[in-house]
Amino acid sequence: MNENILKIEDLVVAFSMYKSGSFKKENLEVIHSLSLDVNAGEIVAVVGSSGSGKSILASAVLGLLPKNAVTKGSITYKGEPITKERQKDLFGKEIAFIPQSVDYLDPLMKVGKQVKGVFGTDERRKELFEKYRLDESAAGKYPFQLSGGMARRVLITGAVMGNPDLIIADEPTPGLDLEMAKETLDHLRSFADSGAAVLLITHDIDLALNVADRVAVFYAGTIVEVAPTADFLAGKDALRHPYSKAFIDALPQNDFKPIPGTQPYAGNLPKGCLFSDRCPYKDSACDADQPEREIRSGKVRCVHAS
């Protein structure tokens, strides 16, 4: 069950942009030396601040980055890099994407046809509709005729049409009520239990903790901590990075106390630790680069973590 499905190593993503007021281009680095792996049978939740590059990570794996993006580092699927040629064979079959927004459905195509897609069959589509409690009549409807929850389930059925081994879900729950959000995550859990690997990008950390095996915390374009879910459930003392601790503190069911400040802009990052200008433990050691360290079966980028 522990087969490695997705492995991202030292990924760097930069966007080439015009400098303001000139015709020169500069590279704006939005993801910095990021490493993450997802194994078969596992859900890895990705949480972190808005605009920290979580969705860019998903786009990078799926080859959906815009043309002006420059990437370095490696992304491998089942041990081999995802090349342009391999993308065709994998995407929509072995690797599936559950997009963030219901807008990803084609408004002018009936739902049944969209779910079936290019590679699917009607039998499989019917089977999935039954599994996800979508009425057969929904297949003949257009997206605007569906409720938000139904549209979500349609996106999921479309994604699992080809029985994927890797599912990337980008914020599948906002706007859903609690019941429906839980149900969506339970579906992801059952995929993982049947052997698939799931990368779950989400803001609903409290819900994600019910289903995930590990949690990766994003901040300003890199992962500051990867920890087993149990550590997040145990509370902030079990966590390693000051940002993860602040994250837990800010939850309404906990202290609801935010740390001040905002995440630094990608073009204006502090030296060394990216979190240093908001960190209560900052000292001179924080100005150095923060390599990833292994502490208590988790990974963290912080010299002070213990």
């Binding site: 601040s49 808005s50 706007g175 803001h203 950390i205 994250f247 800010a250 935010p258 740390i259």
Partner: peptide, 17 residues
């Protein structure tokens, strides 16, 4: 109307406070 669902929890709690 759902003013903080798309925000991370730290920003959410900043805004609500």
């Amino acid at each position: 109307d759902e003013i903080s669902t798309m925000l991370d929890v730290i920003t959410q709690s900043q805004i609500w406070n």
